[in-house]
């Protein structure tokens, strides 16, 4: 484990629960993709969510953010029940990125982030048409804030680029900037380093610390175990839709069940790699799964 990671795990999270998911279950016909999963995220905490392919991690995110309506279970953010409506979730303060990048491809980076401000602004049709004072003020604020966020994630000079023209790593950051634009209390990152090279991966973990340092909590899904164990305060491992282990990185890392879960579901070399990654090796197995997902959506 690297020095920075050790330093950051040291007690920066509080014990005030921010997000409480209770017995979340999602069934698709006969398939139970998420089965009775409970999760608590404390304020200022970085929580890792791991599990083999198809374990239901993304589906769990979709349930939390209201993209899916969970079959059972309940999600509370800062003590308030969240309805399974994406818009309500975002307004309550939870934003996300997608495993298979879903930017607005034909908008510039700045515009993408400006769309993220949508839910925190309220100029209606009338003031927009009349260019009323509220419209001008909000428009200016939106623009400034979007620029700030692009600077924050390190895309300050890519403002004018179309999202689709940006390199892969920058697209991932842009998605994070867009999520941050909604003024969240908690961000959910779905495989933020999938397909990145080691340098980019390190930058991504720095960015996650930076986000946490502004007082936000982060939940991150990853297949790259070195990354997960380096960044997270706590790790939760899902297997076949159920919670297998939850604990500090050290606990999860040394848990034989985790290693077995990865080997048990391994059907090919790629998954076997992942099991090793679980034991501390670096691996970019995430790449493979990102490609898979991009195809089926």
């Amino acid at each position: 484990m690297t020095a920075t990671a050790a330093a950051s795990t040291a007690g920066s999270s509080t014990n005030v629960p921010l997000l409480q998911a209770d017995g979340v279950t999602m069934r698709f016909g006969g398939l139970t993709a998420v089965n009775n999963v409970s999760m608590t995220v404390n304020e200022g905490e970085i929580l890792g969510l791991i599990g083999p392919n198809g374990a239901g991690k993304t589906t769990f995110f979709n349930c939390l953010t209201g993209l899916y309506k969970p079959t059972e279970g309940q999600v509370r953010l800062a003590g308030v029940d969240l309805p399974p409506k994406p818009r309500a979730v975002v307004r309550a303060g939870m934003a996300r990125t997608f495993q298979n990048i879903r930017l607005f491809a034909n908008m510039t980076a700045l515009e993408n982030v400006m769309v993220g401000r949508y839910c925190r602004t309220s100029s209606g049709a009338l003031t927009s048409i009349l260019h009323g004072p509220k419209f001008r003020r909000e428009e200016k604020e939106t623009r400034t804030r979007a620029q700030e966020l692009l600077d924050f994630v390190g895309l300050g000079d890519s403002t004018e680029h179309l999202a689709r023209n940006m390199p892969y790593g920058n697209q991932r950051r842009l998605e994070i900037a867009r999520a941050l634009a909604t003024d969240p209390k908690l961000v959910l990152l779905d495989e933020p380093t999938a397909g990145m090279n080691p340098l980019e991966t390190r930058q991504a973990s720095d960015l996650i610390f930076k986000i946490r340092d502004t007082g936000l909590a982060v939940v991150v899904i990853e297949h790259d175990m070195r990354f997960i164990f380096g960044v997270c305060d706590r790790v939760l491992c899902l297997v076949r839709g159920e919670t297998l282990v939850e604990g500090t990185p050290e606990e999860v890392q040394s848990d034989p069940r985790v290693i077995e879960a990865y080997i048990g579901t391994a059907t090919d070399e790629d998954d076997a790699d992942k099991a090793e990654a679980g034991a501390g090796h670096n691996s970019d197995a995430g790449k493979g799964s990102a490609a898979n997902d991009a195809e089926d959506s």
């Binding site: 818009r87 934003a95 879903r102 607005f104």
Partner: peptide, 8 residues
């Protein structure tokens, strides 16, 4: 879907 998830 992405727009919806961003609160649009």
């Amino acid at each position: 879907k992405a727009a919806e998830a961003m609160g649009v």
